[in-house]
Design a protein around this nucleic acid. Sequence first.
DNA 1: CAGTCGTCTGGCACGCAGTGTCATAACGAT
DNA 2: ATCGTTATGACACTGCGTGCCAGACGACTG
Lengths: 225, 225
Amino acid sequence: MAVERALETKYRIAETAMALFLEQGYESVTVEAVADAARTSRRTVFRYFDGKDELAFPDHSARLELLARTLVEPTGGRSPVDVVIAATEAVMLDFLGRPELVLRRYRLTRLVPELRKREVLENERYVALTRAYLRDHLPQDGPSFLPVALSALIDAMHRSALGNFARSGGTSDARAELQEGVEWVRRVLAADPSTGGPLLLAVLPDTAAVRQSLAALRDQARDLI
Amino acid sequence: MAVERALETKYRIAETAMALFLEQGYESVTVEAVADAARTSRRTVFRYFDGKDELAFPDHSARLELLARTLVEPTGGRSPVDVVIAATEAVMLDFLGRPELVLRRYRLTRLVPELRKREVLENERYVALTRAYLRDHLPQDGPSFLPVALSALIDAMHRSALGNFARSGGTSDARAELQEGVEWVRRVLAADPSTGGPLLLAVLPDTAAVRQSLAALRDQARDLI
DNA sequence: CAGTCGTCTGGCACGCAGTGTCATAACGAT
DNA sequence: ATCGTTATGACACTGCGTGCCAGACGACTG
């Protein structure tokens, strides 16, 4: 297939480039040097990549499509927030499918400001998608900042878990961390009446027995809720 | 003063550039054209700005310093979250001090992808500052994702309010919207036991009267809490 | 007033990213 | 084997960004 060959070429160029960047530094490696090392031409490099900085992100266009595709799948009755969370988990699993790439890119982005810039931009495109989805699917009677706040929150969890994964050298369980993070989001949302969460209130006699029961319940709730 | 004259030059160049960008489009305006229109040289433009895209953000370096300065001021016993919120409000007030600049830049960034990129990057620098502050000052026993989540949240409120301000043509009360947003954050944090918020639980007999009282309380709480 | 020192500015040249164009090569289908 | 399609490579060109140096401007001093 033609597509396979093209993909192979793209990744060959990208890996050559990343290796050169790590060896010699981003600035001092020209695109022509990358092309030569990958046994191709400068022009071809720019056919596969929009810019020199994108050489470290050969997988992002595909992953962005994955996110977009996941967001339009039938929801099966799930809430918009759950749909976005599931889509974010799918994106993370895709990331974790290429752990070496993630680790190498992490080193590069810490080292080269230009590549860090690019990473921030790529990330913004993910957030823009989820934000638009929430804007379109969340009930309109909630606070107007909810879509932007929730997309930022979920993205923050995603990045935090992936960052820990990279810093740990690929040993941490990024998926579990993400789930822990979004659980926190869910819990916090559920506790807020303006987003439709349940609310439990009561008036009780102020006796020692009641106080003691409440304290016990509170301690349990700290772990359970 | 030399500093005043330099600042005057910088803003003259920036305003000339923004006008040209809006008239003729970002791509088709060369830096040399900007320099000529601002009665200076190409070389001088690059002395005041790190790149062509920065021509639309003459105020960001100063505002970044403002944020950094505000974050190191004595806290006066406020919590780290409150310090970050106050600093964010200071940044927003600084933005609102130049409403024409905000509006013009908003039009530009919606129109020119290159400038939108730059805006995202500038924004990331603010978030990096607040995130680092929270990482250093928040209690260490909380969830590890709290700094990144909170900085993302507060930033989201900030951007949402400023975006509405620009979209409304400068008529909306951005400061009030920001405060509304951070109030939501505070409320939501306070409701979460893992971040030390209060928790109120009770067990009641399931009678019609009790149910009615709870419903009434719940309706009040929707507005009050 | 003359001289001098530091800073701001403009001109020049260079490297390199990114793009348009076109000719050629590789590949797949029939 | 031939043809149509698609990937590739060569070339030229624009414009950004930077290093370098020389001259202009302003401030301060004797």
